[in-house]
Amino acid sequence: MKAREIFLSIISWLSLAIILLGVSSLVVFLFMRGAGSLNANLFFGNTPAFDAIFALKPVWSGIWPAVAGSLLLLLVTMIIAIIPGISCGVYLACFASVREKNYISTCVDVLAGIPSIVMGLFGLELIIVLRKTFLPQGNTCLLLAAFCLAILVLPTLIVSVRSSIEALPSRLTLTANALGMSHSQCVKNVLIPIAMPGILGGVILSMGRAMEDTAVIMLTGAVANAGLPAGLGAKFEALPFRIYYTAAQYTSQEELARGFGTALLLLLCSWALILLARIFQAHLTRKWEGVKS
């Protein structure tokens, strides 16, 4: 019996050591190789920053087109996903009957389990079918990628909106009802405003998810050399795809250094987003703990 406990502690401390070693070596390696190239030159190459940002001159050796592509992709994705995502979350938390709740949340769970590469394949097949039917000149493009990404991040959004509303104490609803509000008024005027930090946290969380995903966009229109995104119907560059592409196809040390810089940039953005989301969500709890005391 004693031996079992010792065995368990050895395994546990060993696993902590393995994980710390693995993660820290990867991250430190990335910082060492990438920190040096993380400067304005990484973004714009030899083109002056002002000209690059306003697309006056093309950027040949910087990652600005990929940054712009990623930002536009993120924007379009969130525009598509935000209304159905938040509405569905609110509906599940406040209005759905038990049967509906059961049915819809099963769907959300299954949707959350679909691998992103399958979502990419869905996008590819969709455009092939569209080409055969009523959009003969259609091609994989930014809008298609954003659409597939939106489906991919919907579950994240729905689950976090739902749980941040359900985490609110039930006395809020009781008080609101006692004051004569209808249920819809209560949701609109009390629950949603109070749950807002949590909802925003969920939005940011799903933004992080959309920004890092590579598998979807590589089947739905991301390419290595497109320049600045030319519109919703055009091919585009994106940061994660740029990293993926560099790992396999780099031709010079310079390009490799840029790859490290890009990977580090994506990592830092990702961490910043998750930190922001956590701050929002912690704010939600703190607000209620504060009221309690």
Binding site: L26, F29, L30, P240, A263, L266, S270, L273, I274
Partner: peptide, 15 residues
């Protein structure tokens, strides 16, 4: 929490 936020492609690239 930090590990959860590391993009897969970054893991792959570093590895």
């Amino acid at each position: 929490n930090m590990m959860a936020a590391i993009p897969t492609v970054v893991y792959g690239f570093a590895a």
